[in-house]
Design a protein around this nucleic acid. Structure first.
Lengths: 145, 145
DNA sequence: TTACTTGCAAATCGTTTGCGATATA
DNA sequence: TATATCGCAAACGATTTGCAAGTAA
């Protein structure tokens, strides 16, 4: 892996974030410093960096991939309203795998635990505006049956 | 929601499966009984049925959506080699949410726990052939650093 | 008869890839 | 100098959508 200007800056910007951006979010950020960079280059570098174990592609739900400058595995929360993903400071729970192995004929190798909820910003807006965000829609739906 | 022939048969076939098919897998199955059905109709019906709470779109990792004829929420395992998804008979663990809530400023509403591993079929083939499936590649990678 | 649903094809979205040009080691 | 990496645009796979025709209630 050679060091290119694009790759270095991409990595710097990813590491400066506590959020877990999508390729496109990162593209918009990096573009401020490298106006001529292409989205393809962003994707290619994210691929190379995560294959090399320098960054991590987080296995989040949703249609877009998300990337993490931190490689140690840890759990995440996803906001049901805005899609934002953050870290959850909960230690890994290896006992979950044993629990699963007991009830399945799969060879269990690990797990993905993703919490869902509402981020502070959305919670505030949601209360203020009675919006029809996924969260409120879910409540409505539960009410009807 | 009106009852159409396509929708009824789609639901029948989904409920007959213990696996959690993708839209395209279901399309191929339903096509045996309705040769003229279109993939668009399959997608539209899966959407309508899961919005109505009749079926469930499972929030699985991967590029394709997967659907479940059972609406009660439960945990899943995903085979890292073939992508197959099955149920895991582990009861819901609500205490996980409390654990997460304690360490985060999100309003935690739930979680998704997906186990990863190898299905019995793949485990067998993998041992027999020293294949370079994701599982073995992962081991190689760990070895190198 | 009304409006939900269909089949078809085109459009969209996120991501990957082929190419000839550029830049790093 | 050799080749990894780039920017661009086209290709791709999964999903969604517009439309005119068909069908359930």
């Amino acid at each position: 892996m050679r060091e290119s200007r694009q790759r270095r800056i991409l990595l710097e910007e990813l590491r400066a974030l506590t959020s877990h951006p999508t390729a496109n979010e990162l593209y918009e950020i990096v573009r401020k410093r490298l106006p001529r960079i292409s989205l393809g280059t962003v994707y290619r570098n994210l691929q190379v960096l995560s294959a090399a174990g320098v960054i991590q592609e987080i296995d989040a739900t949703g249609t877009q991939k998300r990337f993490d400058g931190v490689t140690e595995s840890h759990y995440h929360v996803r906001c049901l309203r805005c899609g934002r993903v953050d870290d959850i400071p909960v230690d890994a729970i290896p006992s979950l795998d044993r629990l699963a192995a007991r009830g399945s004929n799969y060879h269990i190798m690990g797990h993905r635990l993703e919490f869902t909820g509402m981020c502070p910003d959305c919670a505030r807006e949601c209360e203020a505006t009675e919006c029809l965000c996924p969260v409120n829609r879910r409540n409505l739906h539960a009410g009807r049956s």
